[in-house]
Write a protein that binds this DNA or RNA. Structure first.
Lengths: 212, 212
DNA sequence: GTCTATACATCGATAGAC
DNA sequence: GTCTATCGATGTATAGAC
């Protein structure tokens, strides 16, 4: 899970670098990011403290700030790393729109196995509504990207006559994203009574005629 | 909009109480609640400060605490007051389920005119996911109540054969609530491109055959 | 790379004067 | 009913020893 943030390929670097000081740093950074995700997920960015993150990873807050120079930088790093993992579910250049929808369902299943990540995004996306929030731009851009990708998928399905009557691509896009976000909130408040994956599939079944 | 929180009927008290000191208090409390709603909406409960609330209403933080003995009490008062306003849209004992759905649409339109309230609930419901949040119990109970009311409406419609094929009342309930919550987040991030009322109506049209 | 020590702001809340 | 003054806790961030 360690990342090669120091801009050297992990495999090659392990041999050539002196006494593995960079390797240690990378491991530490990764541990910090894990802890930070937990802390920001539990209380949001504003109420989560650097001290709490540092404590969980077993160092002082000053030590933590050696790796991430500010709290906002730390948040950005957490979001970046989760995006790498999450984006692999939705294909960037799908052969047909149905693949994207299947990717969303797979993403919902994956999310159900990582409550911390869901908590992070639900809390932050609400918190980051304020324009002065350090993650505001990130979330605005993220929604644009998601809307573009899902939108293209529904347009493709419409072209091929696979949307049910009276379903427009634009509405289907907004509604699908809203459904995923809304199900997450309910799931967080009562995990046992909400199956995000199943409900999303049922919902998409009502919009299209493709096999999911 | 003043509330009779001092446990005296407002009308009777106005005559008998000496020199209207209580009336002043009620006005002040109301002003505080307005400011608190704004502050909590912008940054959530944890990052919104009593000082900020006090500043907006033009007094010191100590002065504010004379009216609301703690920050949590203030939050509870804010939520109570908004509930009084919001709950009037969804009938408590509807003649038929369609009335409830029409109430939800009316509520969505009303919400679109009060961004602060939407921001408050979106931010808080995510923040209050944590069990130790002072509003956690409130939101758990609120979702139970909403689910019960909306659920009863869809059961009624099913009994009368007004649900579309393959739509179960339980799914329709979860999905409708998710749709409302999810649309709010998108609307907050980009108000001009989302019409909560229209999208909700379109969505409900896909679930039932009643005239909305 | 991590620590201690420290600076400095802001928070919720209390005590007591007016 | 509102104020000033103050407390103790907690927050981010910096400087410099090790």
């Amino acid at each position: 899970m360690a990342r090669a943030d120091e801009a050297q390929p992990a495999s090659a670097a392990l041999k050539s670098r002196p006494r593995g000081s960079y390797a240690k740093s990378a491991v530490t950074r990764s541990a910090i990011l894990d802890a930070a995700l937990e802390v920001f997920a539990e209380g949001g960015f504003r109420s989560g403290s650097l001290r709490e993150v540092a404590m969980r990873v077993g160092m002082s807050d000053a030590g933590l700030l050696h790796h991430f120079s500010s709290k906002s930088k730390l948040l950005a790093a957490v979001l970046d790393r989760r995006d790498e993992l999450g984006q692999q579910f939705v294909p960037l250049e799908p052969d047909d729109g149905a693949e994207v929808l299947r990717g969303l369902i797979a993403l919902a299943r994956f999310n159900a196995s990582e409550p911390g990540v869901v908590e992070l995004y639900s809390t932050l996306s609400a918190e980051a509504t304020s324009p002065d929030h350090p993650a505001h731009e990130y979330f605005v851009g993220r929604y644009q990207m998601v809307r573009a990708r899902v939108g293209a998928a529904f347009v493709d399905l419409e072209d091929r006559g696979l949307l049910r009557p009276h379903v427009s691509p634009a509405f289907a896009t907004r509604a699908t994203i809203a459904m995923m976000d809304g199900l997450q909130v309910q799931w967080l408040l009562d995990r046992s009574s909400v199956d995000m994956q199943a409900d999303l599939r049922t919902f998409l079944d009502g919009l299209t005629t493709v096999e999911l």
